[in-house]
């Protein structure tokens, strides 16, 4: 199956007629076969960016969209050969499941026999063979999502664009479909751009994540990079749980009200902000520890416990403890952190 094209955005910006600056000038390249995820809070410009790649919106003057190096900025969406999955699925209500999936092929004048074969392949790929003759209003949300995906993939698009395809589903179904979608994208090896505001979705699906904020890219990196090495407080707090705390750095360590921690290389000096993931903090007996605090609350999550600790820093610290560790409110605890788990934030 086709593996698609590389997509390059050059100085892409978007100002809507009403003056809304939805996207500031943005440069980005999506490699052939890569799954790139746009992640950010609602209204940050993810959909706008995706619609520019699709050809549903024109970028402001000067912006360029390239597919495999060829300029497609002026190419209408009908001729870009892209697959698109909308949050609302946008399935054609006057057609059956099979007709929906085959629509792009019919438009391309693929002969009926081959079309039927390809539709059958798509039905099998997305696991919805029994639904082939159903009407759209006879489908559940998850089934619609699969039809929308099959319809977009059936035309063997050069790039697959997905705008919050799982957001409309309930949590359990979302988890299951996320896994399925991940496997599908990997097996197709297609270039895909995926938009979501859900960080868990972004981490599990993306080869790389583009974190956006108010029309700007704030960080681009693999899921591990953006998780372990966020470049800003915004990224640290948007992706996963994070303790963002302030302290005074000097001579390779950083001081807090409840003690001090070793800093990673190269150390900073003076007032600085660091980020610590809850699971990077090890709770120990207080004796002999450089950094201590008092347990403020414990919530048992089954597989682990979430512990809130006061007095260690100016802010409350959240740490994770194994599920069998006995802890209760008021216990004094020591907090141990490996220097490389600690990240200095620039803002």
């Amino acid at each position: 199956m086709s593996t698609g094209v590389s997509v390059s955005l050059r100085a892409i910006a978007k100002t809507f007629p009403d003056g809304t600056r939805a996207l500031k000038p943005t440069d980005l390249t999506v490699a052939k076969g890569e799954t790139l995820v746009f992640l950010g809070p609602s209204g940050c410009g993810k959909t706008t960016c995706l619609r520019i790649v699709a050809g549903l919106e024109k970028p402001d003057a000067g912006g360029r969209v390239l597919f495999d190096g060829a300029d497609v900025t002026e190419t209408e969406i009908e001729h870009r050969n892209i697959g698109m999955v909308f949050q609302s699925y946008a399935l054609f209500p006057n057609m059956t499941v099979a007709e929906n999936i085959g629509y792009g092929l019919k438009i391309r004048k693929v002969p009926p026999a081959e079309r039927a074969k390809r539709v059958a392949e798509m039905l099998a790929l997305t696991g919805i063979e029994p639904l082939r003759d159903r009407r759209i209003d006879q489908l559940s949300g998850g089934q619609r999502q699969r039809v929308a995906l099959a319809r977009a993939v059936a035309i063997r698009p050069r790039v697959l664009l997905l705008d919050e395809p799982l957001t409309a589903l309930d949590a359990a179904l979302r988890d299951r479909l996320r896994t399925e979608l991940d496997q599908l994208l990997r097996s197709l090896g297609i270039t895909a751009i995926y938009v979501t505001h859900d960080q868990a979705e972004a981490m599990s699906l993306g080869d790389r994540i583009v974190v956006m904020k108010q029309g700007e890219i704030v960080q681009v990196g693999t899921p591990r990079e953006v998780y372990f090495e966020p470049n800003s407080r915004f990224v640290a707090e948007f992706i996963g749980a994070a303790n963002v705390i302030e302290g005074m750095a000097s001579e390779g360590s950083i001081r807090f009200p409840g003690g001090q921690l070793m800093l990673p290389e190269p150390p900073a000096e003076g007032r600085c902000t660091i980020m610590l993931r809850p699971e990077a903090i090890e709770i120990r007996a207080p004796a002999g520890e450089d950094w201590t605090g008092t347990v403020q609350g414990v919530s048992f999550l089954g597989d682990r416990q979430r512990v809130t600790i006061a007095g260690a820093a100016a802010e409350m610290i959240v740490a994770e403890a194994p599920n069998r560790t006995r802890l209760k409110t008021g216990d004094r605890v020591g907090l141990a952190v490996a220097p490389q788990a600690l990240r200095i934030l620039q803002d």
Partner: peptide, 17 residues
């Protein structure tokens, strides 16, 4: 729903189709 029209366009449909 304008999305239906956009979806059709993404699949290659022109104004007449």
């Amino acid at each position: 729903d304008n999305r239906l029209i956009e979806a059709a366009r993404s699949l290659g449909a022109g104004p007449f189709a």
